[in-house]
């Protein structure tokens, strides 16, 4: 641990330069070294992005449908997950009996349920929403319970002593203190919901994103495949930032 501390701008510049170097190496490798048709350079990816990939109305529709599935699944996970979390976290017995069960279920690799989900819900959006929901709900439940536990009983006790009803205690004491932990869960839920939706999308190759990823892979079109994947990755980053923004609004009282 040594070296003079760098300013934030310097760190950002180094990070940016690093990125440029990596892209340059990638471009150089794809253009001059690799003879494989499986490697596409960054310039090829950008050129494929428009009009081949995002200019295709079918791809745009698939990306749009995925986004809608994601939003529905995420909303459902948050609402249902917080409800369950609050109900379980309210009592000591509830927490100590249900919380370990939730943790153990959370640990099951859900990918194995994917074929079953598709069998039950069909190949349409419902299966993808269901699979995204089943991924997203666990971090919400776990972090809601953990967040309720973090609230000091002293604060709740003194609110009760000053005559706050149970509802008022939840609204004015417990909720504000849960924000940090719960939003950590929401960010994780966003990532996991996307994971679930995308897993189901890729698994069902008759339509949607999965159809195009399979088509691009089978016709050896790595540039188009990468352009599509990068688009979805950027979408994921944007959604994550959105959750972070909302979190900032809710935790303003701490400043």
């Amino acid at each position: 641990m040594n070296g003079a501390p760098l300013s934030l701008t310097q760190v950002r510049m180094i990070r940016f330069a690093l990125l440029l170097v990596l892209v340059a190496i990638w471009e150089f490798y794809a253009r001059f070294v690799s003879t494989s048709s499986l490697i596409a350079g960054p310039s090829d990816v950008v050129l494929a992005w428009w009009p081949k990939v995002m200019g295709d109305p079918g791809v745009r529709l698939a990306v749009g449908v995925t986004l809608i599935e994601l939003v529905i699944a995420f909303t459902m996970s948050v609402v249902v997950g917080m409800l369950i979390g609050i109900l379980v976290g309210l009592s000591n017995v509830g927490r100590r009996s249900i919380y370990p069960v939730v943790l153990v279920l959370y640990g099951i690799p859900q990918a194995i349920l994917l074929p079953l989900v598709v069998l039950v819900f069909g190949i349409g959006p419902v299966a993808k929403i269901a699979f995204g929901f089943s991924h997203g709900i666990f971090p919400v439940i776990v972090n809601t319970i953990a967040g309720m536990r973090n609230v000091s009983p002293l604060l709740v006790g003194s609110a009760a002593a000053m005559g706050a009803t149970r509802a008022q205690q939840i609204r004015y004491v417990i909720f504000p203190h849960m924000v940090g932990t719960v939003f950590a869960g929401l960010r994780l839920a966003m990532t996991l919901t996307l994971l679930g939706v995308v897993l189901a999308e890729i698994f069902v190759s008759q339509g949607g994103i999965g159809f195009y990823t399979l088509a691009y892979s089978e016709t050896f079109n790595p540039a188009a495949l990468m352009a599509l994947v990068m688009t979805l990755a950027l979408m994921a980053i944007a959604l994550n930032e959105l959750v972070r923004l909302v979190e900032g609004r809710f935790s303003r009282w701490k400043e």
Binding site: R187, V198, I202, T213, L214, Y216, S217, L225, M226, A233
Partner: peptide, 12 residues
């Protein structure tokens, strides 16, 4: 934070 599952087709 980016679900790497997106890149699974590339791995294949």
């Amino acid at each position: 934070a980016v679900p790497l599952t997106l890149f699974f087709p590339l791995f294949v």
